[in-house]
Write a protein that binds this DNA or RNA. Structure first.
Lengths: 206, 206
DNA sequence: CCCACTGTTGACGGGTAGTCAATAGCGCCG
DNA sequence: CGGCGCTATTGACTACCCGTCAACAGTGGG
């Protein structure tokens, strides 16, 4: 034989490293195709790893997926430094401008995040989305300086959660369908949010 | 032997009947659990039918699912008899009231339909949703009497599609989370729709 | 009454996911 | 510097799920 040297068939990594490696791979694949169109076989092959190892680290394909979603949802924590001066119009406009900027920079990630992946209702994914929505609402209230409001607080939160449904749809119109420009989305979102805060909610809880 | 009578192991039905039967069963199952949590095996057993027959009638599990979605989406065609008189506020209010009434009556169906989420990245489902959205937008424009508008027509449609994202989220707040009452949803949707039509779109295309 | 038409079955092949005992990197200790 | 043990990693095994298709059996018409 030319050589009996080792040339190990696989390298042994620290659990954290291996975990991160698989996760990165999953992020990529789930980012470009939806849940069930990605097989663990492919994930394993792509990660250069045995299929069983994925289960060892993440338990289940679903849990791996949830891990990816969680990551996608909570990373873009654009710092809400207080722009707590100016009229409410200015604050809303500034906040939404910042929001759109973050989205524009993380286009692929945002689209992957708001399109829930698989189809049909999925309680786990849905819950993650809800958590993310709550956080978004908190930020929004904070930014426009209404975080200490008490009258109709829960209703206002619910309305802003609804509003975020429009925000998602609008960004889809902007980034995917290209039927609206960023400026138009900005105008739309500003107008409706102001309406909700200054008219709908205000009239509802005088 | 007591009797050699037939007692056929299965009954032979007209294709339409069998198809309808399977479809009804699928509607129920997909209504209460999400796509991949329902197996064709279960579907077949529940329908009292061989698994292969499902493929015979619908080709594929996916196509069966799409059939269900299509049905759910297009049944609630609440007739738009012209309430084309009154102020725009009145017309919008009436239209949305009717909309909420239809939803309230078909609660389960509506939830099953919109809970397919913020659009999976499944092109087929997505296309069906888009078709349904287009129809909804048509009805909306017609109802409020803006169906012949030309200036910024496509942008207006896009904004109303975005708006429908909020409508879906708001009905979810109403029916699932119970964080908003029907009246509050009505107020919210009226206010924002009027803002979009009379302010956002109007200012955008003078 | 029986035959042909066709609605229906059920076994087969290929695929995917989770489990677990066996295996083999590789750091560490002598 | 060699071998020993810890544990990261493998890969076969089981169980399920889906689409196909040749064969079978209700059933209505002659």
């Amino acid at each position: 034989m030319s050589s009996t040297e080792s040339a190990p068939r696989w390298r042994r990594l620290e659990p954290d490293q291996r975990r991160a490696q698989i996760l990165a791979c999953a992020r990529r694949l789930f980012g470009e195709r939806h849940y069930e169109a990605v097989s663990t076989t492919e994930l394993a092959k792509e990660s250069g790893v045995a299929r069983g190892l994925i289960n060892h680290y993440f338990g289940t394909k679903r849990e791996l997926y949830l891990e990816v979603v969680r990551e996608l949802m909570f990373i873009p924590e654009f710092t809400v430094e207080q722009l707590a001066h100016g009229t409410i119009e200015q604050r809303v406009a500034g906040s939404l401008d910042r929001f759109l900027a973050v989205i524009e920079r993380n286009r692929a990630m945002w689209l992957a995040t708001i399109s829930t992946g698989g189809y049909g209702r999925d309680p786990d994914v849905e819950q993650i989305m809800q958590e993310a929505d709550e956080i978004a609402v908190d930020r929004m209230l904070e930014t426009v300086g209404l975080n200490h409001i008490t009258a109709g607080r829960e209703e206002l939160r619910a309305m802003i959660r609804s509003y975020s449904g429009m925000a998602k749809a609008a960004t889809r119109e902007w980034l995917v369908r290209r039927s609206l420009t960023r400026e138009q989305v900005h105008t739309l979102l500003c107008g409706t949010l102001l309406t909700i805060i200054t008219q709908v909610h205000a009239e509802m809880f005088t």
